[in-house]
Design a protein around this nucleic acid. Sequence first.
DNA 1: CGATGCTTTGACGAACTTCAACGCGGGTGG
DNA 2: CCACCCGCGTTGAAGTTCGTCAAAGCATCG
Lengths: 250, 250
Amino acid sequence: MVYAVNGDIVGLEQAGAACRECNLFQLCLPVGMGSDELEELDSIIKRRRPLKRGEHLFHVGTPFHAIYAVRSGSIRTYAPTEDGHEQVTGFRLPGELLGLEAIHLKQHPCAAMAMETTSLCEIPFERLEELCLRLPGLQHQLLTVMSKELLQDQSLLMLLGKKSAEERLAALLLSLSERYQRRGFSPTDFHLSMSRNDIGNYLGMAVETVSRVFSRFQEDALLIVQRKHICILNLPQLAVIASRRVSDTE
Amino acid sequence: MVYAVNGDIVGLEQAGAACRECNLFQLCLPVGMGSDELEELDSIIKRRRPLKRGEHLFHVGTPFHAIYAVRSGSIRTYAPTEDGHEQVTGFRLPGELLGLEAIHLKQHPCAAMAMETTSLCEIPFERLEELCLRLPGLQHQLLTVMSKELLQDQSLLMLLGKKSAEERLAALLLSLSERYQRRGFSPTDFHLSMSRNDIGNYLGMAVETVSRVFSRFQEDALLIVQRKHICILNLPQLAVIASRRVSDTE
DNA sequence: CGATGCTTTGACGAACTTCAACGCGGGTGG
DNA sequence: CCACCCGCGTTGAAGTTCGTCAAAGCATCG
């Protein structure tokens, strides 16, 4: 029996029902765990009131106590550079974890802000570590998630290091498309919860360039963009652009 | 009693002596572990014959069985992009781990090549996971190391996303300087084990640009560069350049 | 000692940033 | 309910950084 059809039912916050009844099951931390194990994991997870657009989950320097899983909505993480500016480090969708990069310093090196109304699961880290000692599957999954994140960062490195503006934006759109699809939404028709500024910052290009590339994509009939709504017309071609060869030295 | 003064004594490979007598103790996986725990960790670690310059530790797609710690020498990791080119993802110095990004896919997503004669410790991952279940300190340290790596990747993201060629090279030199210092070498006088090509690839700039920036730094009396030998004359100024404000939209 | 690969330097052009102005839409207050 | 205002997004023109192409210098190695 399924009580919660999506993760956004605020009334269920703090209720006993949790991972077992969350439709993000296969994307999140509980991947591959048995139901006994799940019950144990559930018991340490806290649910908090949803964040409104613009609210922070944590700031830079906030002591690290817990990692978080997005339940619904979306989160933007960003870090201040030494020079007083910011670098957007990622956009998190439902089922994705955040806060893992804080373990080392015991405080958050980046801030996390809701890009829209967002509900989250809070997983106290010390208790998670304890639990990992007893549940091999959980330990493995935690390591796996972190490994996955390392991998993602590496592909972003390639993006920033080797790709042109068009390729970068195409890659971001593709990534969003895939992630929405895995969550049961349309891969070709979705809403951008982040601003052009966020996109430009994340992809290492000026806002104006983001805007121009969007326009160019639209001229080429690859997509239709209306403010924050994206409708992808030619996904395969977008994929071609994203993985297009870049002139290199070798 | 200390048998191995540094990690490069080939004759000791496969000998019982290991972490407890390695001078990289405080940099590597065993941080904060008791001597009983260390003994257990030692028991699963294998030492292999040193790699010669240009030899691979693993290739892309190699099944993942173990993570590695650099004992002496240095390793370059790089990943092929979809377009047939490569992106250098990092340079590993003694005491640093590699292979963690492979957990998720169960095979290595990047290749690892020795930039000079390099000896390594091999840590079978399954046995490490088992051990982590019994040694909370080890589990914590493994998570910490991965967290640290996430953090490093993020600062590299900033580098590639927001910084000019000069700032990028200054940041790399600074990073190397700090890491050499922690390992007991001179922070101002060291040998670059990587080629200009590697540097350019890693920092997302053309070889020629790397060369030009080196020349500019030398003209400005920041450093003296002779082929692969670097002598930093003005470390503080280099730090200023590395963290110089970049014109942003905000 | 010539060959080869790596590095450096110069000239040119392209891609992107910067600066500036304008359009659009949503929210607020009259 | 409408008008105004402000933030966000778009578009154009000029300027800069960096990549590309080409060629030459310089160590290493057979």
